[in-house]
Write a protein that binds this DNA or RNA. Structure first.
Lengths: 253, 253
DNA sequence: CGGTGTGAACGTCTTCACAGCA
DNA sequence: TGCTGTGAAGACGTTCACACCG
């Protein structure tokens, strides 16, 4: 968590808002699907529906990237795919290491969504000597002892931690020391990292707990104190905090 | 409740901000760790550090739950664990089904974080007949055909979708029709659900893409202000905005 | 004195509504 | 005409700073 309290004074306005960045992958996915169906153009309304957001938000988001649409027509699918990919840095190759090849690590190694988006699983690393050499998703697992060498040899700057909670901080420290500056953490731990290192977390049980909160509230409302029937229209459009990353994220979110 | 006016009459209001709800599991995890070390009380400063947030935010968050602290002392760990658990609805049992027992589904079934927080894996469901009967994490996999019966028999209201993208919407529809009102979606798809159903999504590749965005920006900054900006001349502005917890501020000199 | 609880200031994100262009 | 792009308004979230109390 980077103990240093870095305060950002004022806002330079040319940066893309974080909330927008978090939605770009969503738009990209929807656009890729359209591209595969050879759809040449989309309106903000259509694309927004496909991405699960509203159209005003989508247009605002795109306005931060530039004016890539045509008034009266919509957006050129191919062009937009390229622009968003470039903005996200997906036009380059990102070698990634996954540390901790348990159930989750194996799932990640097999996950097709990585390779298709410019990410390349450069190595799988596990602390269990019995795993060493065993191929997972066609990639032989290597031992933690060689972690630093692997990072350096492959020029890895992004690491994925899928170890048990107890090992996560130690692995994180070694990754950072070896040159990794972005970490995706699946272990249920708060990682301490130096300034300049980004950590995103995905915590499976946190997501469930948030669902439980809302679930409980639904149940409570049905027998609510003021007796009002709570079904649908009574509340606002609710149900909507799904599409947001974050945060929660994710897991994190 | 109409028109969202909802003024909070001081204490015990059901209007907890979503951002706060998303952090409660984090506090709970930190508190549980303290509880296990038999620490009787914590200050907001200490607990905030353990949870990876700042203390003002934590105090504000807790203020929405009520006044559970003691001025000059801090918070009673056990009491707070109970209050947060109750608020999140974790004092009751939540039967959960996992649909799609591939690598990821198996990882989820084995994930200890579920069981330890009031969630009980009531059933594992997969469309592959060859999987039927095979035990994963000690629970026999059942076939999709029996989905509705399983949901009803177990009173399941929370479902986890870990299927391939193509099957997700269909599975979702069946879950909802059978009575599920909260869904945690791991498939890279936007799910359409009726009002009253909550969906949270965890997308592994989206998280990596967000990291790539920041990673790219770091690399670009090292190259200096006149570094290559392919098309847009308006890029290069910093405002390094970290994903979660704490954020590195990469400042231009 | 030390640390909580909270109004008020501030910043960020979303939504509205319409000007302006193809 | 139809849809993008965007200022302005509003909702939401975070941080500040200090009153208040054990």
């Amino acid at each position: 968590m980077a103990t240093g309290r870095t305060h950002r004074p004022a806002t330079r306005s040319r940066g893309i808002p974080e909330a927008t960045v978090a939605r770009l992958p969503l738009y990209l996915r929807a656009l890729t699907a359209l591209s595969e169906r050879s759809v040449p153009t989309v309106s903000s309304e259509e694309l927004a529906a496909a991405a699960g957001v509203n159209s005003a938000k989508l247009r605002k988001d795109f306005s931060y990237l530039g004016s890539y649409g045509t008034r009266g027509v919509g957006y050129d699918v191919e062009y937009l795919v390229y622009q968003i990919s470039r903005e996200l840095g997906l036009t380059q190759d990102w070698p990634v290491v996954i540390v901790g090849i348990g159930n989750l690590g194996a799932a990640l190694a097999n996950y097709g969504g990585f390779a298709s988006r410019g990410f390349r699983v450069a190595a799988l690393i596990d602390a269990d000597p019995a795993m060493a050499g065993k191929p997972v998703a066609g990639i032989p697992v290597q031992h933690t002892d060689d972690l630093e060498k692997i990072i350096e040899d492959n020029g890895v700057s992004i690491g994925v931690i899928a170890t048990p909670a107890g090992a996560a901080q130690q692995v994180c420290d070694r990754l950072v020391a070896a040159g990794v500056t972005s970490i995706l953490n699946f272990a249920p731990t708060v990682l301490a990292v130096p300034d300049g290192v980004d950590v995103r977390k995905v915590d499976l049980s946190i997501e469930l707990q948030i669902l439980a909160f809302h679930e409980q509230r639904k149940a409570g409302e049905e027998a609510g104190p003021d007796g009002a029937a709570p079904t649908a229209a009574t509340r606002k459009e609710s149900t909507d905090q799904g599409p947001e990353g974050d945060v929660p994220a994710v897991m994190p979110a």
